[in-house]
Design a protein around this nucleic acid. Structure first.
Lengths: 182, 182
DNA sequence: GTTTGTTTTCAGTCTTTAGTGAAAACCCAA
DNA sequence: TTGGGTTTTCACTAAAGACTGAAAACAAAC
């Protein structure tokens, strides 16, 4: 039997997720499904992880929205079954894509907003900026550069993960883009 | 005055951090120090962010342990003052290094432990493994590969950020290591 | 349209994480 | 070694986030 190992895997996978700001239960469900060859239904997951139906439902939907798990039908049953992506490269790619979309992209917008507030509120009588404010803007700009690099890196690295053959070509492009930034 | 912009920057920087599993206040202190040209003392930070002494102290220490902020002395005062790293590339490098050390590195050890439990508990009478368990081990191994790639990527990308001149050389090595893995 | 099996929602509760503030420890100068 | 300024600790409290369970909504079969 491999129950002890599975138990341990599920627990630590959940812990790890929570240090990265991801819901613990969501990650535990993911761990369970990743190891299961078969698609599982909600009741099986509830029982295995000792969680409520609401909790299972919410986190399964969340996993589906991250494209890490998909709903599948099982002929002869009206229930939904859930099956996890098994290719770790695809897994990584999907996590990168979603975090980029949900959490990196909005940062540029926020920084831009700060920049605009600064420009509109900081102008002196003669339209010039104080040194202090110029420095502030410069630091905001530096963060924007960093954020944009992260974004472009994410988009550059994704096809690399998803399509083995495209790897080298994309890395070359990546180097070129780094060179032009420095 | 740039107070509205600073306020906004501090708030959203804190929000962003918390979606990445980083303490909100720690990140707000960091935002404040990053924008300040001068080193600030604990009381100034407490007053500016409306937080308690204990909270300020704890999070400042944490920022120092991440190498994002350093304690500095101010001649004529017995207080500690705090000054944030201003180079965003250094900042990124330090965050990557710490997260790698604290949160990626232990994953390999945990996965290894799962693997060992599996091997020791799953052997049949004849020392062979069931198909189910072999599949489990294979999936654990795939996660270990991914984790190791993340690790090696982190170590490869760090000098690249820290030393502009080493950039190309390291990327070349990176490509080589990817090639040998695929 | 009704029954039956299933999923979804959500107000209330629980758990976990973060923050407070006062007391203790620390540390230097006198 | 004593005193005053400063930092650190920690038991307690507050806030945030996650979970529950029962009721409502839904959907397929009859």
């Amino acid at each position: 039997m491999h129950d002890a190992a599975l138990e341990r895997f599920i627990l630590f996978w959940g812990e790890m997720a929570s240090t990265w700001g991801i819901n613990r239960t969501m990650s535990q469900i993911h761990a369970l499904l990743y190891i299961s060859e078969d698609a599982l239904d909600t009741d099986t997951i509830m029982e295995r992880l000792q969680i409520s139906r609401g909790n299972a439902n919410m986190n399964l939907r969340s996993l589906v929205s991250w494209s890490l798990v998909r709903k599948v039908h099982q002929p002869g049953s009206r229930k939904d079954f859930f099956y996890a992506e098994k290719d770790v490269w695809q897994m990584a790619a999907r996590i990168i894509r979603e975090r980029e979309r949900r959490e990196i992209r909005p940062v540029v917008a926020q920084l831009q907003a700060c920049r605009e507030i600064l420009l509109s509120e900081s102008k002196g009588e003669d339209g010039s900026l104080e040194e202090r404010d110029e420095q502030f803007i410069e630091r905001i700009d530096n963060l924007m550069d960093l954020t944009r690099l992260l974004e472009s890196f994410a988009t550059a690295v994704l096809p690399l993960v998803e399509d083995e053959r495209a790897k080298l070509r994309r890395v070359i492009e990546l180097i070129a883009s780094w060179k032009s930034k420095s």
